[in-house]
Design a protein around this nucleic acid. Structure first.
Ligand SMILES: [Mn+2]
Ligand SMILES: [Mn+2]
Ligand SMILES: [Zn+2]
Ligand SMILES: [Zn+2]
Lengths: 126, 126
DNA sequence: AATATATTTGCAACCAAGTTGCATTAACGA
DNA sequence: TCGTTAATGCAACTTGGTTGCAAATATATT
């Protein structure tokens, strides 16, 4: 089901992603929006925005769910296939716009590659 | 804390991994061992075997925890750094003994790369 | 073999992330 | 402004995983 109505909650979440490059964990987002909207609403809006091709999700450490804005995606096609990076010092999570080549396997078909890199980000390199 | 005593529960879990190449999700293992031991015991033994370097863990889809046996690891050093593969048809999860090269980044230090490949396994290629 | 001691286990309660059902509220086209 | 229908809040639930503590068990000592 696509989004039909422009509600207050929707535009709040939308503007958060518009003004932000780094990814955002759902847990943090729910916390940040406490008072503005219910956590169920947060989950539902994120799900719809992902279907729409506005944001994409991936798993961080411990399987926590993260979202980041998409670049050239639509509801039909998601282009945001790239590794994600998690800084072990400050906890920041970012999309890396690089291509990591996955070898071909004789006896398997690979459809997707979820890659989570961990290390120190620019700010934390010191 | 290292394992001090060879108990029944420990050897059950140990033999399961010895006789198995594919990875095993904790959820499935707990289910399989229902009747033999408590789930808390399963979690604790897995944790100890991982510290010991006998098995290693990683996250599958939805952040579910999986374990597979190690090859040349010890409590000090884990060599099992490799991608994991999850078959979207039969659900089987395997360790892939290949090296996927991660590029160097100017402004970041990468320490680890968690890679989860998804596709069709040999059996499911048909 | 009996005892002492320390580790392991079971159990029940808990926690955190995420989901669901349903009644209420709010967008928005007519 | 009204009626329809989508969006929301809320409480209850589910699932994977953790914790505290008392009871059980493995092993060392006598
Ligand atoms: Mn991304
Ligand atoms: Mn492995
Ligand atoms: Zn950082
Ligand atoms: Zn398969």
């Amino acid at each position: 089901m696509s989004i039909k109505r422009k509600t207050k909650s929707l535009s709040i979440i939308l503007s958060i992603f518009e003004n932000r490059d780094a990814a955002l964990s759902v847990v943090d987002l729910v916390e940040e929006l406490k008072g503005d909207m219910n956590k169920t609403t947060v989950y539902r809006i994120l799900e719809r925005l992902e279907n729409e091709g506005t944001i994409h999700s991936f798993s961080g450490t411990n399987g926590l769910k993260w979202y980041a804005k998409c670049h050239q995606c639509s509801s039909g096609h998601h282009n945001d296939v790239h590794p994600h990076f998690e800084c072990k010092d400050c906890g920041k999570v970012e999309c890396l716009e690089v291509n990591i080549s996955i070898p071909n396997f004789e006896n398997r078909n690979i459809y997707t590659a979820d890659i989570l890199l961990k290390g120190q980000c620019t700010d934390c390199l010191s």
